[in-house]
């Protein structure tokens, strides 16, 4: 990977890594640190890493850093992230808020699998490489997490 390619990855994926870290550890400053660390590691090894594998390498490092953070410090409650809300999007945003809240009921691993799947669009095999799980484990954990989210949100709906 050349310097230009590395810089391209920064522009293209830094915010995605940040979102992944933020949603996992719920701490914006720590999430920025995770991004910086992931890119530092990528830069120190950029000569031996192909440009095509840059993104998954970044997420692998970010995943490990997030897990380290989780083991070291208990994640905080979700910080208030300013959102731009328009009136016609209100109900949609409400649902998103419920969904974000529902993510809290998941364990760290399941949450990371959901984030990698939904935000980054990785398939089971790619998620397995990033997280060190095999494909079947990814499938099982993801499906279990979806069921938990579904049941939680159905209960929430009934209460409302």
């Amino acid at each position: 990977m050349t310097r230009a390619e590395y810089n391209h990855i920064v522009k293209e994926w830094a915010n995605n890594v940040f979102r992944f870290a933020l949603k996992t550890i719920n701490d914006a400053e720590e999430a920025k640190d995770v991004v910086q660390q992931a890119f530092e590691v990528l830069w120190t090894r950029h000569e031996s890493i192909d440009f095509d594998k840059g993104k998954s390498y970044l997420f692998t490092v970010a995943h490990r850093r997030c897990m380290d953070y989780y083991r070291r410090d208990k994640p905080k409650e979700m910080e208030h992230i300013p959102e731009i809300i328009t009136s016609n999007e209100q109900s949609k945003n409400e649902w998103r808020a419920y969904l974000q809240e529902a993510l809290k009921i998941l364990d760290q691993r399941s949450k990371q699998l959901i984030l990698l799947k939904d935000y980054e669009g990785y398939n089971y095999q790619e998620i397995g490489k990033i997280t060190g799980l095999n494909e079947s484990q990814v499938k099982v954990y993801l499906h279990r997490a979806r069921k938990l989210l579904k049941n939680y949100l159905i209960q929430k709906k009934q209460l409302l």
Binding site: V10, N15, Q36, E40, I114, L149
Partner: peptide, 29 residues
């Protein structure tokens, strides 16, 4: 309905300081 969507309005952070050779580049942490 339980799939997260891309457009969740997270503010974009300027990570240009991570680019190598840019004027904003920070020393390695």
């Amino acid at each position: 309905s339980v799939y997260l969507t891309q457009d969740d309005n997270l503010p974009l952070i300027d990570f240009s300081y991570l680019e190598k050779g840019s004027e904003y580049e920070l020393p390695p942490m």
